[in-house]
């Protein structure tokens, strides 16, 4: 038995290390290809780098347990938007420069660097100041913790303000248990089931409005590019 648990422990460690390596590989790939999108002189190289960035973001969605979003990212971005971008590049490449962009002026590069640097610095400061305890937590862990405090309070019911605290704690535990029950009914199935449940329940109106938006975009795109014939 001892050797068995040792073997499974080693397996788990190997899996964790593999996941860590994969995570950093995808992170670095995403950032590097995003930089390539920005600095490449040939706009076609930019488009290919953009495809790699989208692939990296899809991989990160899988790491974030958003499998459906990863699939949508692949289908819509890599399969749709990149192809559209390629088409636009090919259609508009009949100039003497072809797909190579003429060098950008120092002014444009400087302005871009300053704006991007300021935006990144502001975001980094905000991230650094995040105070809320963001961590993966379940309602069960929370109400169990609160129940421990409730137990302590009930052992000493004559302390000042204890009745009020018991009342508020009980209400909070009940709310958390309700949340847990909802999540177990929803997440007993795969995450895609829960996502569909929420998308076609709570978010039905935005979902339907999005279809009108897509129709409008479709018609608008055709109207904009069609040749005037009369």
């Amino acid at each position: 038995m001892g050797s068995l648990t040792g073997a499974s422990g080693a397996l788990l460690a190997a899996r964790t290390m593999l996941a860590t390596l994969l995570f950093w590989f995808i992170m670095i790939l995403t950032v590097a290809s995003a930089v390539m999108v920005v600095v490449a002189r040939n706009i076609l190289h930019s488009a290919f780098s953009l495809a790699v960035t989208f692939l990296g973001v899809a991989g990160l969605y899988i790491f974030l347990h958003a499998d459906f979003l990863a699939a949508v990212q692949l289908i819509v971005y890599v399969g749709g938007i990149i192809v559209l971008v390629m088409f636009a590049i090919m259609f508009s490449a009949h100039t003497q420069e072809g797909t190579v962009e003429p060098p950008r002026s120092i002014l444009a590069l400087g302005a871009g660097a300053i704006v991007a640097g300021v935006v990144f610095a502001a975001l980094a400061m905000l991230i650094n100041r995040l105070q809320v305890p963001f961590h993966e937590t379940t309602p069960r862990a929370q109400w169990q913790k609160l129940e421990g405090r409730l137990y302590v309070l009930q052992g000493n019911p004559h302390a000042p303000g204890a009745a009020d605290q018991i009342k508020s704690l009980s209400a909070e535990i009940a709310a958390l248990k309700k949340q847990e029950a909802y999540r177990t009914t929803v997440s007993a199935k795969p995450g895609e089931y829960a996502l569909g449940h929420v998308l076609l329940g709570e978010y039905l109106l935005p979902f339907e409005v999005a279809s009108i938006l897509i129709l409008a975009a479709l018609v608008g795109a055709v109207v904009i590019v069609r040749k005037e014939t009369r």
């Binding site: 995403t30 950032v31 995003a34 930089v35 999108v37 920005v38 960035t53 973001v57 871009g112 660097a113 704006v115 991007a116 640097g117 935006v119 990144f120 975001l123 980094a124 991230i127």
Partner: peptide
């Protein structure tokens, strides 16, 4: 934040 800054640039 990095992707956002790259996009702004």
């Amino acid at each position: 934040a990095l992707l956002f800054a790259a996009g702004i640039f």
